[in-house]
Write a protein that binds this DNA or RNA. Structure first.
Lengths: 230, 230
DNA sequence: GAAATAGTGTCTGTAAGACACTATCGG
DNA sequence: CCGATAGTGTCTTACAGACACTATTTC
């Protein structure tokens, strides 16, 4: 990837002659676990077992991460780390922040670019390796190494901001859903109950109204909606 | 800075045995140039002369930037680049985004962390070296190298978002100012005129009302306000 | 008084929060 | 009919946008 005639500065040195940091990516993969009878849906984060060699022999759980390889973009590295460490294919990782404390990693000088990615629970549970990964409640104060607790907090905050502005912007719901389904997802992200009527009025004109109606369940059937193509 | 017993991974290699990118910082330093008779205040960005050696002999202007040195935080590197390249002391640089295209810099593999910093025109004009720097209108489509046009656009957007939420959050105004002064600054940042009455009603209860009044000028004297201590 | 600038009264439209009501199903 | 869930009517409050008015100065 280096040019044949590497660039040399005024003192005749190339970029490689100056000290460079290692650059890592760490990703908070968030999802919404669907409701089960009696349990509301909840926001969860994907954790992977820490490499014992990299963590000084200590066990534990951490956000998936990896070092950036030559020729890769950060998004590539995020996808690779999810694929290798969790068996999961990422969708659209989004940068959050660079953690840059020179002493944050005792292995050396390591910058970490924090990312957020969002997957449906179906994708995540079908793909992830249960021996290497677990899902933990994203709202809880988890004990995580490095800056991972801060990354998680940033990621949840970012996702909440996104979900406050529109209808399921990360497409966690499928092709057809009821207003109650949509509200349940938004409540899981927000971490608090939302008003039924206000919520509906805000969302209804951002969605396509389908002709179909739910049937077979208790209570009045619900209208079905779909995401607007946009 | 390296520990005496460097960390070795499963294959016995240290972090330094893997390829690492160079990491740069580039900063959009924004300011508001005060009104002169007949000319409204305007948002401006600080540009520095490009190092001809680094730009293949081509002249031109760019955002100030530098490479990250060992032991430095990104904010440190931003401050250093402003100090060395422009003679300016930065205040509170804020990360915007990491530009990570592996081919974005023809000198090699260089990541750039874009930053925003904001200074008063007084600070900037007292400190900056006019032979090395100029102020350019931040709204214009400037021809800038690398991703600098994108960085500038991100920086302006971020500043607009900040100024939409409160009264002069970056403290571009001094200890006492009129509502018209405040509105002029917000209009320069927003890049469009704002309603006099709506603006006042939104701002007035975020400020401390001073006892003093302007005098000596044409028209009704104006009440003076100060930033609330926060 | 005229020009200029500062500041306010008030109407309209929109939207959130809150509450209670109506609608339509299964059993 | 009852229980359960879906969906709406409507009141209150708040606030942005818009317009026109009043207030206080210099000349």
């Amino acid at each position: 990837m280096e040019p044949d005639q590497p660039y040399r500065d005024a003192s005749g040195r190339t970029l490689a002659d100056y000290p460079r940091p290692s650059v890592a990516v760490d990703t908070a993969v968030l999802t919404v676990i669907p409701a089960t009878p009696g349990v509301p849906p909840s926001l969860a984060v994907l954790l992977v077992r820490r490499d014992p060699a990299a963590s000084g022999g200590r066990a534990g759980w951490a956000l998936p991460g990896t070092f950036l390889h030559r020729g890769e973009t950060l998004a590539d590295a995020v996808s690779r780390s999810l694929s290798v460490k969790a068996g999961v294919t990422g969708r659209d990782p989004q940068q959050l922040h660079v953690f840059d404390d020179p002493d944050r990693d005792d292995r050396g000088w390591v910058l970490s670019v924090a990312h957020l990615d969002v997957l449906t629970h179906a994708e995540l549970d079908a793909l992830r390796d249960p021996r290497l990964t677990r899902l933990a409640p994203a709202g809880a104060r988890l004990r995580l190494p490095y800056d991972h607790a801060a990354i998680l907090a940033l990621a949840v905050d970012r996702l909440r901001t996104e979900y406050a502005t529109g209808a399921d912007p990360r497409r966690l719901l499928g092709a057809a859903f009821t207003m109650t389904d949509l509200r349940a997802v938004h409540e899981a992200v927000a971490g608090r109950p939302l008003q039924k009527d206000t919520f509906r009025r805000f969302m209804v004109d951002q969605l396509d109204e389908l002709a179909h109606i739910t049937a077979g369940r208790v209570g009045r059937p619900a209208r079905l909606y779909a995401h607007r193509p946009a």
